[in-house]
């Protein structure tokens, strides 16, 4: 019986391998006339942000006649799975790898492998801490976090400076950078940080944590958050106690939902990251590098603040 099971497993293995090999070949044959072949790896699928990014990359690929495979780790923000995709891409022989590192350090071995294989690497949105990357493009999370916090603190004026910060998922690079940026602004403005708690980038957590904090602090002037999801959750919590007039909330990312909240005056400001633009730039940079054209090492995309003053131009 042992044999039977072994044979079955091996059969399964072979069938799988053949299927995959077949799948890979098919796509090759179909799109032989393309300019280049790339893979595009995002951090996770747990936020509409990544969907917009993939859309941007696909749009660019269509415009530039590039074949692009969009991939995302099954386990959110798992850098090891990203490495797997990169390695598969290298053996498959793609021309360029565009990866949004889930972790700046963890992605480095993958980039080094790609470098050794002579494959171009571009990292939109999040910088990698090493390896030879052609271009990074995006709004620096640190800077943008800083700008948002600075805006809300100056908007509040000199006297009202009691701040709560809602952090993203612990262990997440983006969460860390945005928090550090906001902390810098808070320090510069001499504001008081009442509490800094994680709400794991999630709306329900944002609501729960905010409900708890509202009990603790009778006076809160503003809530700075690491993304729009948490901000909107916090707004629901604050609104339920009727304190939304006194407590100002900031978001980050510029989701559609958040834009609408700004229009309604519930959310004060959010950083518009334009994920699709970041991805588009990434593909363009990779394509240019493939043609041997020079590319800037860093492309800073403006992350304009969306506020009530300019919200109308975003809502079409």
């Amino acid at each position: 019986m042992t044999k039977k099971i072994i044979i079955l497993f091996l059969a399964l293995l072979f069938v799988g391998a053949i299927l995959m090999a077949g799948g890979a070949k098919e796509t090759k044959v179909e799109k032989a006339a393309l300019f280049a072949k790339m893979i595009f790896i995002v951090k996770s699928m747990d936020n509409p942000f990544w969907d917009s990014m993939i859309e941007g990359a696909k749009e660019a690929a269509k415009d530039l006649n590039i074949e692009i495979d969009a991939l995302a780790p099954i386990k959110p923000y798992n850098v090891e799975e990203q490495l797997r995709f990169m390695e598969e891409g290298i053996t498959k022989g793609v021309d360029a790898i565009i990866v949004v590192p889930a972790d700046s350090r963890g992605i480095v071995p993958g980039i080094e492998k790609a470098n050794a294989a002579g494959i171009i690497v571009v990292t939109p949105n999040t910088k990698a801490a090493g390896g030879n990357v052609v271009t990074w493009d995006g709004a620096a999370n640190f800077d943008a976090g800083y700008e948002v916090a600075k805006y809300i603190l100056s908007e509040l004026g000199g006297t009202r400076k009691k701040v709560i910060y809602l952090e993203g998922t612990p262990g997440n690079q983006t969460a860390y950078d945005r928090k550090e940026g906001a902390m810098k602004a808070i320090k510069e403005a001499n504001a008081t940080l009442l509490a800094s708690q994680t709400a794991k980038f999630s709306r329900i957590e944002g609501q729960n944590v905010m409900e708890n904090l509202l009990q603790q602090f009778p006076e809160i002037d503003c809530v700075i958050t690491g993304n729009d999801e948490m901000a909107l959750g916090a707004i629901e919590a604050i609104d339920a106690t009727g304190r939304l007039d006194e407590i100002k909330v900031t978001g980050f990312d510029g989701n559609n939902d958040a834009k609408r909240a700004i229009k309604e005056g519930r959310l004060m400001v959010t950083g518009d990251q334009r994920p699709d633009a970041q991805a588009y730039w990434g593909v363009v940079a990779a394509a240019m590098a493939l043609k041997g054209m020079p590319c800037p090492k860093e492309i800073y995309l403006p992350a304009p603040l969306i506020t009530k003053h300019n919200i109308d131009q975003y809502l079409k």
Partner: peptide
């Protein structure tokens, strides 16, 4: 823990 400001970690 939220009220006491203990790190959520």
């Amino acid at each position: 823990m939220n009220l006491m400001g203990i790190s959520s970690l």
